[in-house]
Write a protein that binds this DNA or RNA. Structure first.
Lengths: 344, 344
DNA sequence: TTGTAGGCGTTATCAT
DNA sequence: ATGATAACGCCTACAA
């Protein structure tokens, strides 16, 4: 019989075998210092007694939990679900587990989740910070200075220099715009995200660079700010279509806005991509469902998660010095060409 | 200075205050047996020394980790992301954390994840089982018999009687069909999911019941099996539209198939919902993005997660006897009426 | 009201 | 090759 709550411990196995608990521990760990015979004996007995190692006890002793914390604004957003998938894959492959928390885009919640995760003794934390104006960069600076292993992904708060896996938004937007240009479009409009976010500013810059390099003018009338993600799409498109010189393509910093505009264009009976082409950003699952299928920029989300976890684990295993500068990984986006941007 | 790795323990606080660690422990726990003065003193010192409780040590001692395990086929599917959101919300509100794992629809992985989670000493597990033919119900029966707290959601493997939070698929499909009927549609086709899954069989049954109750015939030609989720949609619709008597509405057991058919119908220049209406199932995020917006059945995913976690936590807190029968919760779906099924 | 001591299950450091 | 012992940080009878 087991001691506590029907749970077998190494002591139970030791007793049953007339051995010492430490020998059992070593045997179970496959320590070659223990004779092959004993090792086999022990593992047989362990199986027989349905022994299940207590990971927490081991963690307490070793000072390492093999658990990583993940904080995202909301787990049910496609982007984060996909990143977490990559994180979990990579963690699992390395014997780690992940605890997932949601900040709901509140900095205060985020801060308290970090605290709680540390109490649980996670070995490190990966997070995509909340889009919260109250975000206090000092908190992260202190955290980093304290040496606690933390990795960011998707974006970094303004003014923070820290290990992170990011997307090269400028390049991705550049590539996307180049794709439109090389497909023959010239009067390319841009639906622009909030410019106080790095990612959207970079997308705008990439768009501009591609236009300029091709010798095309960036007409300010063709650059429209996205206010709400989806709902105002029709208005935005009508505004663009009422310009004296109509655009022949729309590159949007968001798939939602792109889809809304695309729908508005179709309502008007326009041919897509004949009269006007569309290209979004984020490669949301719905881009393949709507008709015509929306071209978009894939953000390598799962890869982002994998890389982030891999880097963090490298740090934990001392395989990589915690030189922050070295730890910045920038991924390349991928233009997914679909029906909305190719003249058939 | 702290003893280990710069981490303050209750012993450090005790020493600094000339107290005993147990007093500090009690004070920190807010135990009223400790004088108010001492309690204040202790918490002040704790803050000063940046004390962070070691949850693992406490867990080991108390035999309770306050961590729950969650196993889903894939975290990046909208359905599961949404359920997990609910689980995490509820767990967090009760001082629990969740560890998330993916089975990738493999029974063997699932079984090994259960094992690993138990090693980590999670207090209970919530899972949506893998759609894997090799699934062995005995495994779950044994697990339940052992008394380990486990709750299922979304569906139960055939032949398993266990605590679960499910959707009343029959009723939801019935309601959906009734909505179409009361909107004036009569020749309603059904895109049917694989009948060896309970959920799809129930949806088919609900459709049939509504039709019969309304005195409408269920024409077998109008019932088409969904093979692949999305791609074959156009073929399916053409097949339906080439029938001698064309359907005037399509109720699909999947949003993907519904969307594919809807697109095919639009290609043919049909008016939706004038010529033909569409109603899907799952309320996928894209239903509001495509045009016309797709009516669908909401599966109360977040609520499903919340309820599942709430029930499990009740069991853990001994608030609810572990009578399995009592623990079956059946949620009602909700018909979301959108543009694709209402004649304007 | 506070202190003492033992143990949760494991591992690491001694010694044998 | 194996055993004894202590310790990881916390909690909780029991004692004072």
């Amino acid at each position: 019989m087991a001691k506590t709550g029907g749970k077998t411990t190494i002591h139970d196995i030791a007793r049953a075998l007339g051995l010492n608990a430490s020998t059992v521990s070593r045997a179970l760990a496959g320590n070659p210092v223990v004779s092959k015979k004993t090792r086999d004996l022990v593992s047989a007995k362990a199986a027989e007694m349905k022994y299940r190692p207590n990971h927490m006890a081991a963690a307490l002793r070793r000072g390492r939990s093999d658990i990583l914390g993940v904080i995202v604004p909301a787990i049910d957003r496609a982007f984060f679900g996909s990143v977490i998938r990559g994180i979990e894959e990579q963690a699992e492959a390395n014997g780690f587990h992940i605890i997932v928390c949601q900040s709901f885009d509140s900095f205060e919640r985020e801060r308290s989740m970090v605290e709680t995760l540390r109490r649980i003794q996670v070995d490190g934390i990966m997070l995509s910070t909340a889009k919260d104006a109250r975000t206090n960069v000092t908190f992260y600076k202190d955290l980093l200075a304290s040496g606690f292993p933390i990795h960011f992904f998707d974006h970094l708060p303004n003014g923070l220099n820290a290990p992170a896996v990011l997307l090269n938004d400028e390049k991705a937007a550049y590539d996307a715009t180049v794709h439109l240009i090389s497909s023959g479009y010239r009067r390319i409009a841009h639906l622009r995200g909030p410019q106080h976010f790095h990612i959207y500013r970079d997308r705008y810059l990439g768009y501009q660079r591609a236009m300029k390099e091709a010798g095309l003018v960036v007409d300010d009338h063709r650059v429209v700010d996205i206010v709400s993600h989806f709902d105002s799409g029709a208005d935005v498109f009508h505004q663009l279509w009422n310009l004296p010189v109509k655009p022949d393509a729309v590159f949007s910093a968001s798939d939602y806005s792109a889809a809304a505009c695309l729908n508005a264009a179709r309502e008007l009976g326009l041919s897509i991509p004949g009269d006007v082409a569309f290209l979004g950003f984020a490669n949301e699952p719905f881009t393949e469902i709507i008709s015509p299928k929306l071209s978009s920029v894939d953000q390598q989300t799962t890869e982002m998660g994998r890389r982030c976890a891999a880097r963090l684990i490298d740090v934990l295993n001392n395989k990589v010095a915690v030189k922050m500068a070295d730890l910045r990984v920038v991924l390349e986006g991928k233009v997914m060409v679909r029906e909305s941007s190719v003249v058939l």
